[in-house]
Each structure stands twice: as C-alpha cells, then as structure tokens.
Amino acid sequence: MSDWPEGWDRPPDVPPRAPELQPQQPRTTVLPAHLDPRAPAPPPRPTARPRRSPRLPRVRVLRWVRPRRVLALVVLVVVLLAANLVAVGVWTATHLQHLDALPPAAGRPHDGSDSVWLLVGSDSRSSLTRAQRAALHTGTAEGQRTDTILLLAVPRTGKPVLVSLPRDSWVTIPGHGKDKLNAAYAYGGAQLLVRTVEGATGVHVDHVAEVGFLGIVDLTDAVGGVPVCVPRAMQDAKSGLDVAKGCQTFDGKTALAYVRARYSDPKGDLGRVERQRAYLRALLGKAVSWSLLLRPDRQWRLARGGTSAVAVDGAGPVELARLVRAVRQVGGPGTEATVPVSTTALRTSRGVAVAWDAAAAKALFAQLAR
C-alpha cells in the first residue's frame, strides 16, 4: 500500500517515509517503600531492651521476723529446754536405785571435809540372759565381783583426784584375811568392799555408785555412742574386743569389751584401769555435752538408762551433779593415778596378785584423807 496521497505515485527513487513517531509516555518507576520519599513513614520499630544479668528472687522479710520477736522466741526455747532438764533431774532423783553400801560409823576412818566417792563396776552375770551373756562375751561365772574400783576425791577447793585400785590388789579383807580386793565384793557385797577399801587406804568413803555390765551398754547407747581414741589396734578374745587404731565412736557392746579387756593389753590390769578412767571421762563428758542438752529425747533416754543401770548410796541429785562435774575435771598429772604398785606378779594362795608400793601408796592416801 502506498503511503502517498491519492493520485500521487511515489517515485521509485524516493524511499518510503518513516512513520510518525508517537509521543512516548513517561516511564514510571516504582520505588521500594523505604526509598520512596512520598511514601508514608513506617511505624517506629520497638527498641530491643538490653539483656540484664539474672537476679536472685527477692526475699520478703516477714513482718513477724523482728529482733524483739526473735529474742522472745530464743528465750522461750531456752526456758523450755531448762524446764525439761529440771524435769529430767527430778524424775532421775526419784527413780534412782538405792544401794545399801555404807557400813555403820563405828570403826571407820575420820570423815574429812572433802567428798569421797567409791565407784564400783560390778561383773555380776545374774541379771543377764543367756543370749546377753553370749552377745557381750561375759562368760558364765557365778557370784558377784568387781572389775572396776575407783576412789574419787572431790575437794571443796582445788581439782578432784581419781585413783584406780586394781581388782587383784593383795589386801586384808575384814573377817576373811588376806585376799584379792575384788573378793571382798563376792564375800559381803558393797558394804564389805567399802570396809576393805577404807581399811587399806585410810580414806573415809562418803558415797558409793555401782554400775553393772548392762549399765555400761545402756548408758553408752543412751548418749548416742561415746568417742574414743584408741592408741593401737586391740583384739581380745575373752572380752570380744576387736577395734582398729584411731578415733572412733563406741556403741555399748564395744564399750563394755573395751573396759573389760586386759589379756591383750601389754600392761595387763594396770592398762585396763587406765582405759576405764579414760572411758568414764568420755562417757560423762558426752552426757553433759551440748549435743545431748539440746536433745530432750536423749535426756529422757539417758535418765531411764541411768536409773536402771546405776545404784547409789548416800547421794542425792546435787551430789550426783558434783560427781559428774568432778569426773569431767579429771585428766592429767595430779588429778588421776593408779595406786603405786611394787609388783603385778605376787605369788599368793589365791594366785598371782598385785602388791602395792607401801610407802608411796601411804603418801598418796594420806593426801586424799587430808
């Protein structure tokens, strides 16, 4: 089709006319919203808070926790503990077993101003069942004897003195001649033992306390065990003792075996009396420790065990308290000793016995008597 006007022909040498260019529409460019100045501003983004280190939860102080109320609570607890302790003391005093041990005054040594106790450990098996004898390794010996004999002098001023009298000491027993000291108990009970001790020492005895085999077991278990430091490992077939070297806590069965053992001790009976004194101090020390004073249940258990295991004569609650305090003060040179001995192998009609050093023993007992 020719693009010339009608009736006109395009010369052959004239190139065709380019078509008229249509006006171009402006090109529209769509900008992102964050770059378009006409776009509304986006809402502000929330600012992230900086992380804080974790804090411990706040502890609210209760209103009732105030100094005055705390003090009142402490006073109340102290009062209740003291009241319980008084109740235990009164109950113990009224339930103590009485021992008729003090002989008539005639013929006895002069009564000094100090208080002197005779502490006796009885080895009688009469109150033990067959099962208890087997468990405690006590044997089946009949009659009554004493494994432990101690003199405790409690002066009004100064330190108390605790002296061990070996059970095999060769002495004169009134009415029976020469014999071992523990035989006096077998012949005439506590009264004859007191007369024998007074005659051999010249010291007046004011009070007597006796504890049996089960007493050691019950008292030890009542205080929750007793701490003891053993200098060397010990094994004793006759008493049933088997302990290692070092500090440990004894239960009642082990404690009884420990204070009875002598055949495994190089010092024999003299070594045993030293262990008996040490254990007595440890036992009474535990009985008045804070761990027991703050435990009313253990106080009542000790009171029940003590009243069933210990028998006394000539002593009330005050004297018993002085006894416990005196034993706790014992320890070290000048406050505890074994009666001076010249030999532990004295040949007698009753077998091998212990002979005292007469001069040294007389001086020791003269000091106690004064």
Rank of each mutant, 00 (worst) to 15 (best):
M1I: 13
P5Q: 02
D9Q: 13
E20P: 00
P23L: 15
Q24P: 12
T28Q: 11
P32G: 01
D36F: 02
P46I: 00
T47K: 07
A48M: 03
S53M: 10
R55I: 03
L56I: 00
R58C: 06
V61T: 03
V70S: 04
L81K: 10
A82P: 00
A93C: 08
L102H: 05
P103N: 02
A105H: 00
W117R: 00
L119S: 03
S124W: 07
S126K: 06
A134H: 05
T138N: 15
T138R: 15
T140Y: 10
Q144L: 06
D147R: 10
V154D: 13
T157F: 15
L162Q: 04
W170Y: 09
T172M: 08
G175N: 09
D179V: 02
N182M: 04
A184M: 11
T196M: 14
A200F: 15
T201W: 15
D206N: 15
G212V: 04
L219N: 05
T220L: 12
M234L: 15
Q235Y: 08
Q235H: 09
A237Q: 11
S239R: 14
D242T: 07
V243R: 02
G252T: 08
T254D: 08
A255E: 05
Y258S: 01
Y263R: 14
D265S: 14
K267A: 14
G271L: 11
V273R: 02
L280Y: 01
G285W: 08
K286P: 04
L293S: 02
L293A: 09
P296D: 09
T307K: 12
A311S: 14
G316R: 11
E319H: 09
G334H: 02
D357P: 00
K362E: 13
